[in-house]
Design a protein around this nucleic acid. Structure first.
Lengths: 211, 211
DNA sequence: CGTTTAACGCACTAACCAGTTACTTCATTA
DNA sequence: TAATGAAGTAACTGGTTAGTGCGTTAAACG
């Protein structure tokens, strides 16, 4: 008597999620163009037919992955509760959060890079992005205004420029670390190197906003 | 009588250069993976056989393009003559130069992005890079020391961190402008927007180094 | 002028890859 | 329990792409 075949469970939601997870890794590692649908199928322990069943095309799959990534970082930012802290402390918390998020979610950076190589054509189709982005802008605008009102930030700072700068000084360091290690002949990813950079970034932003 | 075929001139160096130029554009536009050798052949008014004759493989062609790009920016930096100016003015000149170089040579950014996606495997093989990078570091180190000695810069600033920050605040703005235009709902590339950003960057760096 | 060298280019191939076809297996529910 | 439709799979296809084989032609040089 043959061993009774273990009845294969079916779980649409779980399969969908496994595909999404595998796609995130593959897209982050190789970019949209370099990513292989076969690889995603294998890594998700599913198969190509299922990918096209749930996501229609490689581009649409990428769009889903990207949307999920943006949603995740914006949601995490909202949980920071910045209005519970004095402005300067809140700002420092935001700088540290941004750095640590990039560090712990390296896929985010590579996905965004890939999307910019494609001139944001996937993000343009997403309605969700506008909503979460506005919330993010509101949050930081509020922080900035509060800092000015309490007299700890100088007036006239543009929220967009500040946000871009906070992102830039962390993002650039991490995404360009491979070429930087050659140019500067240093290991950029030792715990000490990372700590040094974070401290430098906090200093940069504090000096930028202070009176 | 048919028009006699104009005898085709042969110029190895010119052909090589046309291939290199076309490759730079194609790699910058589509990344290493997305670039098409056929497209490079066509745009260079040569053909695929010539590309492989001069450059052996797609990867080696990419390496040549990347080396040329790094050499170009480093040479331009050396021409700034920063030691002819007071430290703070020299630093501002460097910040402005870096921004303008990225702006006028958008290929540079995309090539570097692509190389980092591939973990700098091409740059690792290049001996030239180390030489020009050291010169660049020497130049900025000298500037920083001079500023401290003259009492206009605070002591203890790390050259590498400073250089990375100067690059970051310009580079990030430009490379991520497509997604940024969606997130911030602003046009990032109008003359006014560019001017605003450059002014902000100068301010950021000045505040970072001042006492 | 004849021989050699190197630039040049057509046309091919072997591999690869996004997307599909045709089918089986399982879970739900009438 | 049988009908229905969704989940799941293997093998295939048409088009694309990096890389080549081989022949041609311009220039260099004795």
């Amino acid at each position: 008597m043959p061993t009774p075949k273990a009845p294969k469970r079916r779980d649409a939601e779980a399969t969908r999620q496994r595909i999404l997870d595998a796609a995130k890794k593959e897209f982050a590692r190789n970019g949209l163009g370099g990513a292989r649908v076969d690889e995603i199928a294998e890594r998700s322990k599913s198969n190509k037919r299922m990918i096209y069943h749930y996501f229609e095309s490689k581009d649409l799959l990428f769009q889903h992955v990207l949307e999920a990534a943006y949603l995740d970082i914006r949601q995490a930012e909202q949980k920071l509760d910045l209005d519970q802290l004095p402005p300067m402390e809140a700002l420092e918390k935001l700088v540290r959060f941004t750095w640590n998020y990039y560090l712990k979610n390296p896929e985010f950076i590579t996905l965004v890079n890939s999307e910019n190589l494609h001139r944001a054509k996937h993000l343009k189709k997403s309605e969700m992005i506008t909503v979460v982005s506005r919330k993010f802008l509101d949050m930081t605008k509020m922080l900035l205004d509060r800092g000015v009102q309490e007299g700890v930030f100088r007036p006239g700072i543009d929220v967009t420029q500040l946000n871009i700068t906070i992102a830039a000084i962390g993002y650039y360091y991490l995404t360009n670390r491979y070429t930087a290690e050659i140019v500067y002949e240093k290991n950029m990813m030792t715990p000490e190197a990372l700590e040094t950079r974070l401290a430098f970034n906090v200093e940069t932003i504090k000096r930028l906003v202070c009176k």
